[in-house]
Design a protein around this nucleic acid. Structure first.
Lengths: 132, 132
DNA sequence: TTACATAGTGTTATATTATAACAATTAAAT
DNA sequence: ATTTAATTGTTATAATATAACACTATGTAA
């Protein structure tokens, strides 16, 4: 469960935009889309993104430098993320699999070390693209 | 097992540098270090990096925009990578765990879909940093 | 061995992603 | 009320990455 955070104006504007988007959004595309709402500079966007990532409302898709809203309601999810990415249409879906997250949360390396966070990105073809 | 590739001059220079490094290297740091060998422009570096990534000799650490040599001798590894990253000292280690790679290679999402590639990054504290 | 295709090179310019630094403002917590 | 932390607005700049073009080397196959 998320601790509830009250978003500031900029954070809310940017979260709403990302949340409505059907695909990951890049920072400068976000900037372009919120300029009419008075957010004019990259840094205003990046600061809001940083915060939203930190509190788990959005995630960064590292391989794409893009951001999507978290739709995983069972969250501890800022720290434990998994995505599938279609290499043709670039559709990204957050994976919520109890067995996967359990496996990864408990994974120990050779030295017996556990980790506090992970991010996993799967690549392949989505159903649509696979059947073309 | 890797198919053997003969590296070109630029590729070899850049691979050697990354391979000797004890830590992930960033593109412009690589550039700086190979300028004395006649590689003068970012694009020369990025082209070599692209190829080296493609053939699995190096991997990109996406969350750090940095590159490390592959030390995983049992490779199909261009397509299936896992790393641990220390959030204090930034040490990165490639994880080679048969059970992990088996688990992930066989992972199916809710739609029963399998993926042809993945990249996993674990974050935490390395042994050294944890005991400080 | 010539021709053709493929991959790599060198170069300049530019696009894209992200942060530094500073002054001012707002919110929250004593 | 005061002060502490977080956020904002702004300008400038750093860091990461690609486009476009002309040219060279290498492999393959007629």
């Amino acid at each position: 469960m998320h601790k509830e955070h009250t978003l500031t104006k900029n954070q809310q504007i940017i979260f709403d935009l990302i949340n409505k988007s059907s695909e990951p959004m890049k920072a400068y595309s976000i900037l372009f889309n919120v300029q009419k709402k008075g957010i004019k500079a990259p840094l205003q966007v990046y600061r809001a993104l940083d915060k939203l990532v930190k509190i788990g409302k959005i995630h960064k898709i590292e391989s794409r430098n893009a951001f999507i809203a978290c739709h995983n309601s069972s969250c501890q999810v800022a720290n434990a993320t998994a995505f599938s990415i279609c290499e043709i249409c670039e559709k990204v879906t957050e994976i919520s699999s109890a067995s996967l997250s359990k496996y990864l949360a408990n994974f120990k390396d050779k030295d017996g070390m556990k980790y506090s966070k992970y991010n996993l990105e799967f690549f392949g073809l989505c159903k649509k693209c696979d059947t073309k």
